[in-house]
Design a binder for these strands. Structure first.
Lengths: 187, 187
DNA sequence: AAGATATATATCGACTCCGAGGTAGAACAC
DNA sequence: GTGTTCTACCTCGGAGTCGATATATATCTT
């Protein structure tokens, strides 16, 4: 997840580690800062893998910065992750939202649409969150805990909101992909 | 998170590992199954810490089950985690929803209200998710990516839904806590 | 009769990430 | 002038989790 976020941000424009840290924190955990001990070793690994290069530049107020730039290899890797995300990126909300934040780097509307459809399919499964002693699902109105009731209520509302957006977005992307295909045939 | 979920479920009624696995999967990742290699060592650790005991019982169709029961020590531990959750349990949606699923095990409405208020306070912070090259926040309507736009839109809608529910719930709990205090003073 | 599937438990190596610690310079408050 | 905060980088140990692998039984399918 962190690797995707780093390459995704660098695809927009070059950044140094400290800046990256703040951007990832704002996006991923909203406000949960990403630890230095996580960020810097990950940058190092991406550099060793040839996904990014660094240039030392003078710091604005303090120590010199390492300006990071994404390479062609890094761009390819990012696109592979976005095009064929692992299942957990579809089902884990945190990871999904990070993926969504960089999906525009996949420049083919058809490919974007396919990823959104995977999420859409996942959200379609009705949520059975709680079960009784015999293993039978307990419907929201039978739950004794008001917190569990609220949890399911919120969960349902959130899902409907996202499904709504997904449907509109998928339709729009498919329309555009259709035009692109038609234009390509004409030419 | 997994430890809290295990003790939380066992607080309702005794369960064996396999059953626990399915319940945690349904709740936590919604559908993301928790790996065996995660569950069983965690159960073992909780047992060693005196938080649960196990009794071997014949399996319904297969190998013998280890029926797990929570101890007084385990109940105390669970309540401590619920009463004073670490910051990440407030800010990470996945973890927060797990906490919410077991908050009814904290039987004092005042304590429950305090936890909800912490979440409420966190949600009040306006989300600045994306920044431009100069580090200035980019408002949703200025974002070029429709995915980022959707992301912020959904995020906002979700927050409002949860805030609404939290406010109602906190008011109800405080009302009840007031009554309890009044009744206690009368007696 | 053989193979797949569901139940049920357990270990091990790998990976991700965090938290605590260290280095260092500039700005700002007291 | 001294302490604190913010910028900026880095390492090490540990916690948590996953995926692969192993074992075993019962049922259902072919």
């Amino acid at each position: 997840m962190l690797k995707m976020a780093i390459l995704g941000f660098l695809r927009d424009f070059p950044l140094h580690g400290y800046d990256l840290k703040n951007r990832v924190a704002a996006l991923a955990g909203h406000v949960r800062p990403i630890a230095d001990g996580t960020l810097y070793p990950t940058i190092k690994k991406l550099e060793e893998a040839g996904c990014l290069t660094r240039r030392t530049a003078p710091g604005s107020v303090a120590a010199p910065r390492h300006m990071l730039e994404i390479t062609q290899e890094g761009t390819d890797q990012l696109r592979r992750w976005l095009r064929s995300p692992e299942p957990v990126f579809i089902t884990d909300d945190n990871k999904w939202y990070v993926l969504l934040a960089f999906l525009h780097h996949l420049d083919n509307p058809r490919e974007q649409s396919i990823v959104l459809a995977r999420r859409r399919e996942f959200l379609d499964q009705p949520a059975q969150l709680f079960f009784d002693e015999q293993g039978r699902p307990v419907p929201p109105d039978r739950l004794e805990s008001p917190f569990r009731k609220g949890l399911m209520q919120i969960h349902r509302s959130v899902n409907l909101t996202e499904i709504d957006w997904l449907d509109g977005q998928i339709a729009e992307l498919d329309r555009r992909a259709g035009y692109t295909a038609a234009t390509a045939r004409e030419a």
